[in-house]
Design a protein around this nucleic acid. Sequence first.
DNA 1: TATGAATGAGAGTTCATTCAT
DNA 2: TATGAATGAACTCTCATTCAT
Lengths: 220, 220, 220, 220
Amino acid sequence: MNKIVVKRAINDRQKEARREAILKGARDLFTEAGFFDVSMAMIAKHSGLAKGTVYLYFKTKEEIFLALSTEELEAWLDDFDSRLTVLAGPIENAEFLDILQRSFEGRTAMQRLLSLLHLVLEKNITYEEAFCFKQNLIRRTDFTGKLIEKALPYLSCGQGISVLTLLQCLVVGWVQMSDHSPVIEKVLEHPQMAPFKFDLQKNLFESLSLLLAGLKATAE
Amino acid sequence: MNKIVVKRAINDRQKEARREAILKGARDLFTEAGFFDVSMAMIAKHSGLAKGTVYLYFKTKEEIFLALSTEELEAWLDDFDSRLTVLAGPIENAEFLDILQRSFEGRTAMQRLLSLLHLVLEKNITYEEAFCFKQNLIRRTDFTGKLIEKALPYLSCGQGISVLTLLQCLVVGWVQMSDHSPVIEKVLEHPQMAPFKFDLQKNLFESLSLLLAGLKATAE
Amino acid sequence: MNKIVVKRAINDRQKEARREAILKGARDLFTEAGFFDVSMAMIAKHSGLAKGTVYLYFKTKEEIFLALSTEELEAWLDDFDSRLTVLAGPIENAEFLDILQRSFEGRTAMQRLLSLLHLVLEKNITYEEAFCFKQNLIRRTDFTGKLIEKALPYLSCGQGISVLTLLQCLVVGWVQMSDHSPVIEKVLEHPQMAPFKFDLQKNLFESLSLLLAGLKATAE
Amino acid sequence: MNKIVVKRAINDRQKEARREAILKGARDLFTEAGFFDVSMAMIAKHSGLAKGTVYLYFKTKEEIFLALSTEELEAWLDDFDSRLTVLAGPIENAEFLDILQRSFEGRTAMQRLLSLLHLVLEKNITYEEAFCFKQNLIRRTDFTGKLIEKALPYLSCGQGISVLTLLQCLVVGWVQMSDHSPVIEKVLEHPQMAPFKFDLQKNLFESLSLLLAGLKATAE
DNA sequence: TATGAATGAGAGTTCATTCAT
DNA sequence: TATGAATGAACTCTCATTCAT
């Protein structure tokens, strides 16, 4: 459980801090336990707040999840963008993967959130919320897509965003395939279960490497 | 709602039939509505049985899901295996994809079940159930992996099963990314949302095509 | 808290009995505490059942209230009807009031429910429920109205139902004006508060007596 | 939403003005939506004040309701009294009803508050509040009762206040019976529901007319 | 074997009231 | 005096699972 810093969030900075505190609490829980196993009561307790207080900052559980996803995704995109922006010119697939991998380091929460995003977006969400979220995402990925196209010259126009979409698909797939409950973890200790013991980062980047190799081969 | 044939299932054949009736009812529902929105009451009603009766055949909702997934996966593997077995010799990627695509036709349930499998495996499942399920799966995929390696000669030993795993990852990712609730569907009607309108089969096989191209290119 | 008689209500008779048990529990509580201060949890506890069980028999709290009101109203109408039916011919106002008063004896619950009916009908009720309830009520009161017209010959056609409506109005008004919480009861102990100490039955029938006298005088 | 005039109410006049602002805001809301559907947050917003500020002037929601009822009742009684005071001598029932009806014009809020008064008095109210309210009411109605007795000479001593009580009863009853939520309104659109479509003013004064006719007939 | 009534913990959410600022 | 953030008990309702019949 987190300690609350101020008793009352009076000014906007403090309110933003409280909002962040709730998101932080939620991030820990979502990362550990997935969306469906986390209750508003848990989020409140984890933030050191009362249940009602959480509702002052977020209308629904889904809104928390979406805000968190937005935050995490944008932070990653910012990071990734800046890594691509500093490049002098085109790079090889290997270097691109290396840059991507470094931008993924320490972003477990983002990856888990992304992997659950589509299941959550199905639920208890208004048209406006969904629209805003998606529109915002499109704007951001559009820009990053362009940077990718500059970095990987064999990509044709519009394929940058396709690479991002493929990445998203692989994250969803691999996170879910490597995420294990204690029971499953125990099952996988058996040597014969080796083929099911996935290392998220390794598999993710290996398969992305193949995809890029495929894209390059196809382009030629 | 399905009709029940016999009042009481006395012998093993009748019991097996009842089991199948439940799975059939559950398949329709899981395919339409996903795991979390389907209740045991719905499954029971859809099978023409009482709730308690369902629990005579399956200890938990997860067990139903697992049994169903096993069934669907095996049916698909049977189909796919036989398509690969009849091959005279090695084939091109394109032909392989074509075979795969044909084996996927009409298997919506399998794809949706597979996409939720890992989320369900996290929950309410015993060590034994998980172990059996996984062990069974390993045995099956091992065999199919070998067939794939024969079909695609550029694959080295053990890469056949990797192809299957990659396929699984892509199915999980793309199914979830293309599945939309009515609200989201409405949002996606906007022209600007085009980049989020995914065609499951198209995307799935295009990305698999790239992966195979990548594998081939890497092998050479 | 009431004792439950059977563990499980299997056949329709037992189910009806359980339904009645819930209504009985609810009646006690509604009579004591009014609609808004009674929770589903209280109703369940008072019936010796679990919360969820109550929801097997009634979809909402309002449905309980409506079922109860229907039951109580019909029981009273049955009673009142039969008292009017046995009359040989027209009667005086005084006798009519006497008959009415006797039919009201021991029907505290009915009077309290009736007095809250309109406030409850405002809430959480579907068009169908409201329609059925009202339609049923119209049918019943129509019949009773006719009996009243026979008993009180100075009434013109259609005025029988008006008498019932006036009665309803007086019940709503007087019940609410005579119903007191402990605090108010204490206040009314002061001698100077005498004008606010209402005796429900006395006031109700005195004012109805005046109304009938007025109707008769107007008719002549 | 109302505009606030001064930032801080320092002297008593300003405080009284603030109190009035709250009551004004509350009146609109209670009249539109009834007691139970109005929240303190709504009252505060409607008065252009903060929630906490409202609590500086009124300890509970019930206290607001009571203060408002007092105000509205007194305003009406003032009006009604002055209409009776200017009379040269005794009048007929019809004229009395006419005077009453004119004093009721534009007093929707008073009628709705009165109709909910007894339900609210049951709740969350202290002995002192209840005592003051009732004592004040007795003093006022005593006077008005006397005026009524002068206007209607067939009334014996003490019956003036009875007429007021009967009026109160009818207001409670008819307001609640004519007040309908949108759903109920829809139900009542059916032609067969005509007997439940009440016109508040019409019914109220017709039944009061009967009561007075009854009183007169009884007196003779 | 089959039933489905019963359970009860737990979900998300609201709101009158308090109190730190 | 004024604020509005914070509270937390209370609400209605759901549903996987149990178990008396």
